[in-house]
Write a protein that binds this DNA or RNA. Structure first.
Lengths: 123, 123
DNA sequence: CGGGCTATGTGTATGTTGCACCTACGGCGC
DNA sequence: GCGCCGTAGGTGCAACATACACATAGCCCG
């Protein structure tokens, strides 16, 4: 099909970073650099560190996570994040949004398959 | 749960308008104003007309759709859009992206349910 | 010491989206 | 005729989220 003038591919949902980080932190406390790697498993390949750290700090200020510096024997100190009760509540809310979106995309998929079959009937 | 300082809810995927319009046009030729209403069924409630018309014109210039003015006996003329072969090819590509995203969201859902069950075991 | 890996950050451009607003046609009531 | 509503298409701009580029710093190893 070959690269086309525009690169117009769809991206992830807007504001998806927050729900992802909250989920990862619900699975266990962690620090920025590690979360960066773990995000890949959720579909966010090569996320930029800048946005990640900014997001974590914003959630810290909002009380969704708690952070503490943990010195490392090998390498620089890390700021480890832990989910708060408030953060856990938000996770539930956001997971609901994610589920809603998933349903919309499923609808898209169903309707797409209909128009695709029409051209290329069941073989 | 009560409104929280931030309104941080997730939104639809970025660049989702294009795949939606291509799908709707694959289901049948239509014009902007009508597409606006049809978009609601795909999860895009209250989309702004500005962006819609801009998107349609962009796709027209790129050759993904063809347009023609159709006079109306009652009301202003409408520009009706029809999907081109090239547009149909793009629909296939974009529908693939949508499916990929849907899979990512499903993964999110599975992992979320795990951490949710942990706190609130099967009753 | 210099370079590479870990780790955390800042500054700013870029791009999509959303809001506000404008034009124009036809039909209806007055 | 005139104002108003619904239909239909469109522009300009600001807000926002993200992407890119770069800066800092500790530790280890050759």
């Amino acid at each position: 099909m070959m690269a086309h003038p525009d690169g117009g591919d769809i991206g992830g949902p807007r504001n998806y970073l927050r729900p992802c980080l909250l989920l990862l932190l619900a699975e266990g406390t962690s620090h920025g650099y590690e979360l960066l790697e773990q995000l890949a498993d959720l579909g966010l390949g090569r996320t930029d560190p800048g946005g990640l750290y900014r997001c974590l700090r914003a959630m810290d200020e909002e009380g969704l996570v708690r952070s503490a510096w943990e010195p490392s024997t090998s390498g620089p100190a890390r700021r480890v994040y832990e989910l708060t009760d408030e953060g856990r509540e938000w996770l539930h809310v956001l997971a609901g949004s994610v589920a809603d979106l998933a349903r919309s995309l499923a609808t898209y998929g169903r309707r797409y398959r209909l128009v695709a079959e029409q051209r290329d009937p069941i073989r």
